[in-house]
Simulated scan of single mutants.
Amino acid sequence: MMPPAIAYPIPAPPREGPAPWKPDPSRCALLIHDMQHYFVDRFDRTTSPGRALFENVTALREACLRQQIPIVYSAQPGRMSRADRGLLRDFWGEGMTDDPASRGLVFPSDGAQVVTKWRYSAFFRTPLATRLRSLNRSQILICGVFAHLGCLLSAADAYAHDIEPFLIADAVADFTAADHAMALHYAAKACAATPTTADVLAHLT
């Protein structure tokens, strides 16, 4: 079963890793990862990391809407069959139901594409990579939950598709500060840039 989230200060982003990439409005898309009530309602929006998560995802989303940068949402379907849930069941149990109150996105999709997610990575069994190629987008900005699970694995899969991933350090949240920090440090060393929201907004605007 999913553990409860705890309050913790957002870890400082790691020192700049080997990736020299900078967000480019003409090349990037925004992935708002699993911002469904089932996952994010466990965070207190008045304290860290919940407050930073909601404020920074909101700022990124609004900047991308203004700049007409594509936005993609990932969302789990709820009430998966045993076959569809696979090994997730052994780690996390049955998962969310198909109750709209649980499955619903925190932010309105505004006509943006919503990819149905089956495993940690938003690229697994989804049209995300094809969608990005069709839009001539070779960068992906990743925000949402949970940092060391779907956000990190989506960044690693983007890297495998030669799409430059940005795991935005203070626009993701996790169960613990240690999980959050681990995701950032692994990403910075192995597969992604890890800028802050302010860093990204400076390049987008």
Rank of each mutant, 00 (worst) to 15 (best):
M1K: 09
M2G: 02
P3I: 09
A7K: 02
P9G: 14
I10K: 02
R15Y: 09
R15D: 15
P18D: 07
P23H: 06
D24F: 13
D24M: 10
P25V: 09
C28G: 00
A29L: 00
A29R: 00
A29Y: 06
L31Q: 01
I32N: 03
Q36V: 13
H37T: 06
F39R: 00
V40Q: 00
V40N: 06
D41T: 12
F43W: 01
D44K: 10
R45K: 08
R45L: 04
R45G: 06
T46M: 10
P49V: 09
P49F: 14
A52L: 10
F54K: 02
E55F: 03
N56K: 00
A59N: 00
R61M: 04
E62F: 13
E62I: 15
E62D: 15
A63M: 14
A63I: 12
Q67K: 06
Q67F: 05
P70K: 03
P70T: 15
P70Q: 11
I71N: 08
V72H: 05
Y73I: 02
S74Y: 10
A75H: 13
Q76Y: 10
G78I: 02
G78H: 02
R79K: 10
R79E: 14
M80A: 14
M80F: 13
S81R: 05
R82H: 05
R82T: 14
R82Y: 14
R82D: 15
D84L: 11
R89V: 04
R89P: 00
D90T: 14
D90H: 10
G93P: 00
E94Q: 03
M96S: 14
S102H: 11
R103K: 04
R103I: 02
R103N: 12
G104N: 08
L105D: 06
V106E: 05
G111S: 12
G111C: 11
A112S: 13
V115L: 01
K117G: 03
S121P: 00
A122F: 14
F123I: 08
F124I: 00
T126D: 12
P127Y: 13
T130R: 03
R131H: 15
L132F: 06
R133C: 04
L135M: 11
Q139V: 07
Q139Y: 03
Q139M: 06
I142G: 07
G144A: 07
V145W: 07
V145I: 11
L152I: 01
S154T: 07
D157V: 05
A158R: 01
H161K: 01
D162P: 01
D162G: 02
D162A: 06
I163V: 05
E164A: 12
L167R: 02
I168M: 08
I168L: 11
A169E: 07
D170K: 01
V172G: 03
A173R: 00
A173P: 00
A173K: 00
A178F: 02
D179F: 08
D179C: 05
A181R: 04
M182G: 13
A183V: 08
L184A: 05
H185I: 09
H185T: 09
H185N: 10
Y186Q: 07
A188I: 03
C191G: 01
A192L: 11
T194L: 04
T194C: 09
T197S: 00
T197P: 02
V200L: 12
A202L: 13
A202F: 11
H203F: 11
L204V: 07
